[in-house]
Design a protein around this nucleic acid. Structure first.
Lengths: 197, 197
DNA sequence: GTCTATATTACGATAGAC
DNA sequence: GTCTATCGTAATATAGAC
């Protein structure tokens, strides 16, 4: 827990420490004292860099949301057949989750107790809606099975993707890389696990 | 938030209220004052029924864990071909998640800050391991695609199932029932979303 | 930029009356 | 079984020295 790094914090470098502790203990379970110990500076020094605990949360979830929304602006999410766009967004979401793991983890755990949290929840719902619309378009093209409810399938697909933050850890010797996870997600979701399906 | 019900609480009925608030605000984000308001009795009255906040958490996660482990003792999880047992456990887990939604929700959000939470995390890992072993057996039978990593697929499958607690709400007019969700999970996971797969 | 000291409020839990 | 009053602690945040 004690990280000891007493030289020249900035809001950014402090955020790195804070987000780690937020994810270990939960946002509400983390006190400024916890952050102070982990950063190796006193509580009051933290207030020199940021206005308070909630600013750290806001910076973290903003970063996560910006990374997710950026996916929807990429060419692969805007051009081509809908099912291909769905596969693209699925893959890229996995990659963003892995690349920005601590920030997205925090975002996905937000409950809505403060203004910042409610704002994050709202923007997240917006992203989910954009993705749901894509799946709907793919279904309209006849590229998704007609016997499954599309809204339900969307929830399950992105539930699966989001579950990454609960177990994925960057390879400390032989783990999975982002591409491998993305590939398996797409295989499982679109072609299934069963042999000769 | 204020629920007002001043007659004859028992530890069980109090738990119902507490678990609801824990899930709305997060365990650490819930104070005894919050619980008191929601239950419609004073803080000190709560202590007449339970030893404290942590006992409420322990009762809740115990209930969730007992329901999950019970699945593994059912005939469908113990007899037959491994892939059929996997499908059975998948379906039943969905059903238990839906039937015990608030309790399992709380369990899946536990962080490990207290002894009770660490005990819950340990038992949960035990359940996950039992399921992972089942998938491994199905792979050994040649019933799962050879081109996906089984451990990874297990994580994704149960990540998808567990994501239920983040969005499933009991049908307030036209939602999905447990069977429909279980069926879609199994279809998606084993046969995939794509047309003519 | 960091510190010690402290103000102020909120929290979990208990005491004791009814 | 429920209440009001309160204890002791831990929380967020600030003041002011170096």
């Amino acid at each position: 827990m004690t990280t000891a790094r007493r030289d020249a914090y900035t809001p950014e470098t402090l955020l790195t420490v804070a987000v780690r502790i937020f994810n270990e203990r939960g946002y509400d379970g983390t006190s400024m004292e916890h952050l102070s110990k982990a950063a190796g500076i006193s509580k009051s020094s933290i207030y020199h860099h940021v206005a308070g605990k909630e600013e750290l949360l806001r910076r973290a979830v903003s970063r996560a949301l910006d990374s997710l929304f950026a996916i929807l602006e990429e060419n692969g999410a805007r051009r081509g057949r809908a099912i291909e766009r769905v596969e693209y967004v699925t893959r890229r979401t996995v990659e963003v989750l892995v690349a920005e793991l601590p920030y997205v983890t925090l975002l996905l755990r937000v409950r809505g107790n403060t203004k910042t949290e409610r704002w994050a929840l709202e923007r997240r719902r917006e992203f989910d809606q954009r993705v749901a619309d894509l799946l709907k378009a793919a279904a309209a093209d006849g590229d998704l099975r007609a016997d499954v409810d599309i809204r339900l399938a969307t929830r399950l697909l992105f539930g699966m993707v989001n579950s990454l933050v609960e177990w994925y850890r960057p390879h400390p010797g032989g783990g999975y890389d982002a591409d491998q996870v993305a590939e398996t997600v797409v295989q499982l979701a679109f072609d299934g696990l069963r042999t000769d399906s």
